[in-house]
Design a protein around this nucleic acid. Structure first.
Length: 794
DNA sequence: ATACCTCGAGTTCG
DNA sequence: CTCGAGGTAT
């Protein structure tokens, strides 16, 4: 073997190891990768080849040695020289003030203040990672042993597996570390690595892991380190164990700083917090970020920062008195599915809902969770009797995450959508290519009638204050109300009778004595609220009718463009189609609704009951130029007759009569291709089609005739601008802000896009603000909004 | 035809 | 809040 070659290899090996260690450090500790994965892989391969060719160059801490040999028959026991302690836990409690809600935390701070004699002491606050506690022993800077926490006294030797974790340095960086050093921290799996792992399992078959914590624990207990190596684990250091030889800082934060220098990842969320108020603020801040963190946490840990103070505090049993874990309410829980029921919505949509054994999740007891639709049930394969994981997605809505198949009872059967509506017995049908099943019973179905009434009375519709679902149920059940108009005939006496009936049925209120009087007062208020709802706006009225596809925004548009209820209820689909945001589906929905005699009667009944749209007005002048015979033809989707060609033709022959009188030859002479002319002629030759067109044309003329001759075009100051509101404002509600912006002609949308003019961010603004920053949409504070409103509304 | 953008509808609990 | 579907712009 020639000497020069040998030394070249030695140098290259050293260089590669140094580069690989540096890349790991950038990636895991600094969270700032600079080397592409492919490059990193090339280095690893080259190093492996060199070490294979020169076995004498292999060292225990080489990056290639991360994956070692399979453990034989389990893991050796390791006694911890210094026990790995547990922490006292504190939980949030119900209460009105922070002192009540965080009583245990307040006690903790008071104890620290009392013992150390300092007011508002300084704490290190850090996330409580949901993983596996681990102790790492380094001798002269080299990792020699890794042990799990176990029972705190002794754990298992998982060194071979821990070596595969790239976030953990095999050799400490820098200098000045003690000759013997124990670093403690948490092995976790990042959410993205967890998702990736389960995604791979799903495609390749195998058992998915329940959560990142189990994933980390399971991975470390693999006998074959090669298996562990394929699961990407991470590590964060947070405490010292045994230390010999070397001086150490005198605060916890300074220690964490040293950990960083030595090459350990330390959570970037660690912060200093002063006194009770500081700790509560940190808890809230981290709680708010919880879902956005790259890993799961189950709470916050507070440690008195200076070691002298810690020494004074000492220990109780096996927990330090200078530290406390404040736990978040659990956000995922196991429970069982007791039934899967169908809910019928206002439009007849049949939604499967899981009835669950009640279980506390993130602070509230959850008993129901939506399963959205039949496809979702099939995807999850949820069955009655299953054990499932539930969580509150984002902030509130409970959802079934997945089923634990290993806990499924024998003889369970897959769930299927029933063929008939459980409420009215009508058939449940599914339209082609749509995921929702619908009850075909229409207003015959009591569930749909009930939902229609709830919608009619709701705040954004007729706004009948105090008429909630419970009383609507009572009214419907006792046959007092069948359609919205019936509400206006109700009297105080009838309400009292209804309330007594349902109170008795439901097991009544204890205030039997006062009830007569109280119920009367309640009924009087309700009758007054119903009376007040008679005075309403066209948009609210249209929205309240509950026409499919007509939400609040479309209702406002209809009111603004058509002006009068009479126009909306008589306008054919072809005319409605020209309105903005109205296509075939929406136009047919409106025209179809008013084509039903029952619906027309319901509207007449409401008007007869005294309901008035106080803001009826003339149709929008903008209809001119948008509405002519051309769009009526274009909307019929005649082959070869594009809207553009229809427009050219109609500019010559603006009425049906003119068109018919001119004849097919004249049309082609005017530039219409003969195929289009043939199709048009065929259409007009059909008596039924021609009649329909004549009716459309008449309705169109009637509408246009209502537009005032002098179109007083006073441009609204904010016309054409789209605002998005996020967070809460202090001087007015979002509802009010929206209303005021709309009176100035602005549109207020629900989500941010490149078309948004400005985003108004109030207190505790959410994801919309991030989106705005990302898209470079201007962001206003409350002050700028108020200034804008003041400027224009003078 | 395709890609965005909006709107509508449904949802839980206190 | 999220999903799905309708509408519109490209």
């Amino acid at each position: 073997m020639s000497k020069p070659l040998e030394s070249a290899a030695t140098a290259r090996v050293a260089e590669l190891r140094q580069r690989i260690d540096q890349a790991n450090h950038r990636y895991y500790v600094l969270d700032d990768p600079e080397v592409p994965d492919a490059e990193y892989d090339r280095w690893m391969r080259e190093l492996e080849e060199l070490e294979a060719a020169h076995p004498e160059l292999v060292t225990a801490d080489s990056p290639t040695r991360r994956v070692g040999a399979r453990a034989q028959g389990g893991f050796a026991e390791v006694r911890h020289a210094l026990p790995m302690l547990s922490l006292s836990n504190a939980f949030e409690q119900p209460g009105d003030s922070d002192r009540e809600r965080f009583a245990e935390l307040a006690d903790f701070v008071a104890r620290v203040e009392h013992t150390t004699g300092r007011r508002d002491p300084l704490f290190a606050a850090e996330p409580k990672l949901d993983g596996l506690a681990m102790s790492l022993r380094y001798e002269h800077g080299v990792l020699v042993q890794a042990a799990t926490r176990g029972d705190g006294e002794s754990g298992e030797d998982v060194t071979a597996n821990v070596r595969t974790i790239h976030a953990i340095p095999m050799r400490l960086r820098g200098s000045g570390w003690p000759g013997e050093l124990e670093v403690r921290g948490e092995v976790i799996m990042l959410r993205k690595d967890f998702e990736a792992f389960n995604a791979r399992v799903r495609t390749h078959g195998g058992k998915p892991l329940a959560n990142p914590r189990n994933a980390a624990a399971g991975s470390l207990r693999q006998l074959d380190p090669a298996v562990t190596a394929r699961r990407r684990l991470s590590f964060f250091a947070y405490a010292l164990g045994v230390v010999e030889g070397g001086t150490l800082p005198d605060t916890h934060c300074a220690t964490l700083q040293l950990f960083r220098q030595w090459g350990f990842p330390v959570s970037p969320e660690v912060d200093l917090a002063r006194g009770f108020a500081g700790l509560v603020a940190y808890y809230r801040r981290l709680g708010g970020k919880r879902d956005a963190l790259p890993y799961d946490i189950d709470g916050v840990v507070y440690k008195l920062d200076d070691y002298a103070g810690q020494q004074e505090m000492g220990f109780v049993a096996r927990a330090p008195r200078w530290a406390l874990a404040q736990k978040f309410p659990a956000q995922e829980q196991l429970t069982t599915v007791e039934a899967i029921e169908i809910q019928i919505g206002r439009t007849g949509a049949a939604t499967p809902v899981a009835r669950l054994a009640p279980v506390p999740v993130a602070g509230v007891v959850v008993a129901n969770a939506t399963l959205h639709n039949a496809d979702q049930v099939a995807r999850l394969d949820v069955r009655v009797g299953d054990t499932v994981i539930v969580r509150r997605a984002g902030d509130v809505i409970p959802e079934v995450v997945r089923v634990l198949p290993e806990r499924r009872p024998a003889r369970s059967v897959p769930w299927h959508m029933p063929s008939v509506c459980p409420v009215c017995g009508s058939a449940l049908l599914r339209e082609e290519g749509v995921s929702a099943w619908r009850c075909s019973g229409g207003l015959v179905c009591p569930a749909q009638r009930r939902e229609a009434l709830v919608h009619f009375a709701s705040r954004r519709a007729l706004d009948i204050d105090g008429l909630g679902e419970r009383y609507i149920d009572g009214l419907v059940d006792q046959g007092m109300v069948h359609s919205p108009a019936d509400l206006y005939a109700l009297t105080v006496e009838r309400f009292v009778a209804m309330k007594q009936a349902i109170d008795e049925r439901d097991g009544t209120t204890p205030e039997t004595v006062k009830r007569g009087k109280v119920a009367t007062r309640w009924a009087e208020n309700l009758v007054a609220a119903i009376d007040a709802s008679r005075d309403t706006t066209l948009a609210r009225f249209l929205f309240g009718l509950g026409i499919m596809h007509i939400g609040e925004s479309t209702a406002k548009m209809l009111a603004a463009w058509l002006g009068r209820l009479a126009n909306v209820r008589t306008m054919p689909a072809a005319v409605l189609r020209v309105l903005p945001d109205v296509g075939d589906a929406v136009a047919e929905s409106i025209a179809g609704f008013f084509a039903q005699p029952g619906n027309q009667q319901a509207v007449d009944a409401l008007l007869a009951a005294g309901v008035q749209c106080r803001d009826e007005t003339a149709p929008s002048p903008a209809l001119h130029g948008r509405l002519d015979l051309g769009v009526l033809l274009g909307g019929r989707h005649i082959a070869q007759l594009s809207p553009a060609r229809a427009a050219t033709l109609v500019s010559r022959y603006p009425t049906l009569d003119a068109l018919l009188a001119a004849g097919e030859e004249a049309w082609t002479a005017a530039g219409l291709p003969s195929a289009a002319a043939d199709n048009l002629a065929a259409l007009l030759a059909d008596v039924g089609q021609l009649d329909a067109l004549r009716r459309d044309e008449a309705a169109m003329h009637d509408l246009l005739a209502q537009v005032p001759a002098d179109a007083g075009v006073a441009q609204a100051p904010l016309a054409g601008q789209t605002f998005v509101l996020t967070g809460s404002l202090s001087s007015l509600t979002r509802e009010q802000a929206k209303a005021r912006l709309e009176t100035l002609g602005a549109k207020v949308a629900g989500s941010v896009s490149s078309k948004t003019t400005v985003v108004v961010a109030g207190e505790a603004a959410g994801s919309k603000l991030d989106k705005a920053t990302e898209l470079g949409v201007p962001i206003w504070g409350e002050a700028q909004l108020l200034a804008c409103l003041a400027e224009h509304s003078a």
